[in-house]
Design a protein around this nucleic acid. Structure first.
Lengths: 218, 218
DNA sequence: TTTTGAATTAACCAAATGGTTAATATTAAA
DNA sequence: TTTAATATTAACCATTTGGTTAATTCAAAA
């Protein structure tokens, strides 16, 4: 039998297991391999055999630890996006003396986080398209409150409550779109030069801040 | 034998075929059914049988007209995005007396086009991630020139050539992101109320224009 | 009316794929 | 050292799936 530790542990390994093998444990190896494959191929494009190969284990082990492909994918998704949400949550707590400073801090830190996990936005969008309900689970699991973003624009909220969602979504748009549409944009506007695109991304923080602050300036 | 008319016709039906059946022709039925299924399920998630069912024809017909799934997908993609590119190309020709007016016209018309094909951005992004090379084919087929967008910001180019790509990509970001990430945003910021989100989208044109014009204002 | 090529269908096929099983190895506790 | 639970593997299985085929229908030209 199988249902003793693994399923629904979502990458958080409770050390209730007697032996957690020498160098690295199998469950974690599977999760990481699965993440790579799912991100590269998507849920439908991914093959359980490929995940097993990537993790250097027998395919039966994947089912031993996660039962089904669906299950494994959900574990990977919750793990990956959960960690991401936590990081975002952290930077929302950074203090700034005024709205301008808060926004600057947020844009810098947020784009930094995305830059080190550039696949996450697309991964989330794909999954939410496929299965919107998973987001509810995730939101309640992660403690991330949508209202927290609104706090960034406190002054603005008071002045013009109606526009606040337009504004928040614009911030995300400006930050995320260059990552989501990278392959497309890199070909069209950068002759498919990857280095140039990286350069573009690193310069973008300043640009986004400039645009937002000028827009918000009275 | 089979290779007489169909393959690579990409939805453009050349009337070289003797009988083009009464009400609607099969090739077009397949293309439309395939588009629906591919958009809903993705290339890997789509099933040839489902496409056949959706088109109310025998599965063998799909292979008869398009040979392989890959082929059919490419036909659908080229057809769909090709038509889209043509529409965008058209609105780029609209005259405006100055940059401000050009941008306003573009944003209005572009978001209108997207609103009536809201699935296209995500469809393109997915496909380019999977197979970046197809974009080269598409660009040369469609006559859409990336530089054409730059023309929108002619004044700006002269003043600050470096930022022009940041600007163009920001315009697309602000217009497209709310469509790409709709299911996510609708849940988080609109309590999953579809009507409210539609309202948000229709109001967004004004917002985007306001933001861009204020930013570009000297 | 006959003929000829295209259109259509039901049945079929081989490969891929998610998943299982039964046997074996490993580990740590008793 | 024995034991009992967990971890691991190779072989296997049923189903799905993209794709094929051979027979049939259909439509128009001769």
């Amino acid at each position: 039998m199988v249902n003793s530790k693994k399923v629904f542990s979502f990458g958080i390994v409770f050390n209730q297991s007697k032996k957690m093998n020498k160098d690295c444990n199998t469950e974690e190896k599977i999760l990481q391999a699965a993440r790579r494959v799912f991100i590269a191929k998507g849920l439908d494009g991914a093959r359980m055999q490929e995940i097993a190969d990537e993790a250097c284990i027998n395919k039966a082990m994947v089912h031993y630890y996660f039962e089904s492909k669906e299950n494994l994918f959900e574990a990977v998704f919750m793990d990956t996006v959960g960690v991401f949400f936590k990081k975002v949550n952290e930077i929302l707590l950074y203090e700034g003396t005024n709205m301008q400073e808060k926004i600057s801090l947020f844009v810098d830190n947020y784009m930094e986080i995305i830059a080190s996990n550039p696949f996450i936005p697309q991964f989330m969008i794909n999954e939410i398209n496929r299965n919107p309900k998973i987001l509810y689970k995730l939101l309640s699991n992660s403690g991330l409150k949508p209202e927290a973003f609104m706090q960034l624009f406190k002054n603005r909220v008071l002045k013009n409550g109606k526009d606040i969602r337009q504004l928040v979504i614009s911030v995300f748009a400006l930050c995320l779109f260059p990552f989501i549409a990278r392959p497309l944009l890199q070909i069209i506007y950068f002759e498919d030069n990857s280095n140039e695109y990286d350069q573009f991304l690193s310069e973008r923080k300043e640009y986004v801040k400039k645009m937002l602050l000028k827009f918000l300036d009275e």
